[in-house]
């Protein structure tokens, strides 16, 4: 059962160097063959500085940094009972190969809810604000985790 007193907790930053190959790999895994992700020249022709990161790219630093299990443990969430309920991205500017992005994870909301069927669950909102190597905001990720009880 999640420890609802942990709301407001901020975790150590996720620092991630963005690689061209990772952008291409994610686009190909999705099956999105938009040339802006695969070919620098095509991206430049379409008005980008380089091959931009696809819309859901910020799942990569979160999953590859390997810290999600730490967050879940710290929040006293039962790993076997947790579901990914929602995911939202706000985009402030493009993420390009060579960028070093830093995300600050923060637990912004924790609440208990009762479903229509009467079962109780804890809803945990984790926000990560990412900035780049110039200190500019690039994106905000909001993830809703649902722990069934």
């Amino acid at each position: 059962m999640a420890d609802l007193s942990k709301v407001g907790t901020e975790y150590p930053p996720i620092v991630w160097e963005v690689e061209r190959g990772k952008i291409r790999e994610l686009a190909k895994a999705i099956g999105d063959f938009n040339p802006i992700y695969l070919d620098r020249d095509a991206a430049v022709k379409a008005g980008y500085k380089d091959t931009p990161a696809p819309p859901t790219f910020l799942t990569v630093p979160m999953m590859w940094c390997g810290k999600m299990p730490d967050f879940i443990n710290d929040l006293k969430i039962n790993f076997m009972m947790v579901l990914h309920g929602e995911e939202e991205y706000e985009y402030y500017q493009e993420i390009y190969p060579g960028d070093v992005i830093t995300g600050i994870p923060k637990v912004t909301k924790m609440e208990e809810k009762t479903s229509k069927s009467g079962s109780k669950m804890d809803m945990i909102t984790l926000e990560v604000l990412y900035t780049n190597q110039r200190g500019e905001k690039v994106a905000k990720v909001r993830s809703l985790l649902v722990e069934r009880k």
């Binding site: 938009n34 995911e87 991205y89 985009y91």
Partner: peptide
Amino acid sequence: TSWVPKNRLKRLGVRF
């Protein structure tokens, strides 16, 4: 992004 170019997307949110 097959409808609107990537650099015009401001927000994307889903529920699973």
